[in-house]
Amino acid sequence: MKPITLTINGETIRATVPPRLHLADFLRDQCGLTGTHLGCEHGVCGACTIRLDGAIVRSCLVLAVQADDTIIETIEGVTDSGEARALQAAFAARNALQCGYCTPGMVITALDFLATAPDPCDRSAIRAHLSGNYCRCTGYEAIIDAIAMVGGQ
């Protein structure tokens, strides 16, 4: 077991974790942040996407011990801060989610796109940025629309 101290959604968290525990399980099981989802646990589906020190990462491919002394933001954090409000509203208005299992990862990835893209309405750039986030339900188009809507605001 290893002690870690990190900031999660603005709160300082101290915990003791087994080295093998990945960050997604830590967030979900020990912190109750079940908005971060697990779809594959081998880095391919993007359901577990969160922000670590400002960059999006797969939380199934980061160990909780590696996250010692980092700043973590999850879907709960970007919701509470209001950062994701416009995107979440656009996702709902455009019906860009069905089962909603991919949505937290999509929203976090979309925020990253909007923050970094030279042209936030460029649909093929949105598709490329989201190319590692799997959605089985929507067919993606509504998600692209929702992000482009916010990009145009």
Binding site: I75, T79, Q88, A92, T103, V107
Partner: peptide, 21 residues
């Protein structure tokens, strides 16, 4: 009409069987 559950799900407030403890 947009779906009533969308806001909750987009905020990560879904409750899936795999979340239940």
């Amino acid at each position: 009409l947009p779906r009533s559950a969308s806001r909750r799900l987009a905020q990560g407030r879904g409750r899936f069987a795999s979340d239940i403890t």
